[in-house]
Computed example of a mutant assay.
Amino acid sequence: MTHTLADLPMFGELGEERLRGLAVRARRRRYAAGQVLCTEGDPADHLIVLLAGRVRAARVSAEGREVVLAVEEAPVAFDKTALLVDGPHRATRTALTAVEVAYLPRAAVLELVGAEPSVAARLLRTLATTVRDLDERLLDASVRDVPSRVATWLVRRCAAALPTPTT
């Protein structure tokens, strides 16, 4: 299934005109499984929005060992922090399936964040959730034994798979 920019939580409540303006500035591209979307260390001058497919985010240690950070599924945006601080890509992202992405220029995203408080608020929530998740993963890696880490990971995966209740 191919998603649209409106399916991304950060852009979910934007009006049609604003979404069209963003879509016009986006450059869309398709990648086959195994192709690299972005490489760790390269400039992150675009927000990369995964519209279809699955991507692996990985880093390579100084010893040459690859560490898989995440497997992400559409719809999701990559490297939000690098975009905000004008930094490099923090991981190499490789297509695990055929994927479609939209590259949104840094200037367009920052302009939107400045003009739309709802986008800024959603971006802050996303970044706060990321920090909390990283904190949990650090705790897992430094304090918990392997069986406890596996159990915690399974609980989180099951919880993420459950439908969210509606009120």
Rank of each mutant, 00 (worst) to 15 (best):
L84I: 11
P147D: 10
H3P: 00
E63I: 00
E17S: 15
R29D: 02
L110G: 08
R144G: 00
T129M: 13
T164M: 04
R93P: 00
L69N: 02
R20M: 07
D79Y: 00
T39S: 10
T92N: 09
R122Y: 04
L5N: 03
M10F: 06
K80H: 05
V150I: 15
R149N: 05
A82F: 06
A26G: 03
V99C: 15
T129K: 11
L134Q: 11
L83R: 08
V131I: 15
C38K: 02
V24H: 12
T167F: 09
R59G: 03
R93N: 10
A151I: 01
R29Y: 00
V49R: 01
P117N: 12
Q35T: 08
A70D: 15
G53K: 05
D7W: 09
D86C: 10
R90P: 01
V99T: 15
L19W: 05
E17L: 12
L50E: 03
L83D: 08
V101N: 05
L139V: 13
R29F: 00
V119T: 09
V155G: 08
L5C: 06
L37N: 01
E116T: 09
R27Q: 13
T129S: 14
L124I: 13
R25L: 13
T126I: 14
R137T: 01
V55S: 02
L138K: 03
G87Y: 07
V36L: 10
A32R: 15
L96F: 08
L14F: 09
A74I: 04
A44K: 04
G114S: 14
R25G: 00
A57T: 02
A32G: 10
V101H: 07
R93E: 12
P165H: 03
R28T: 12
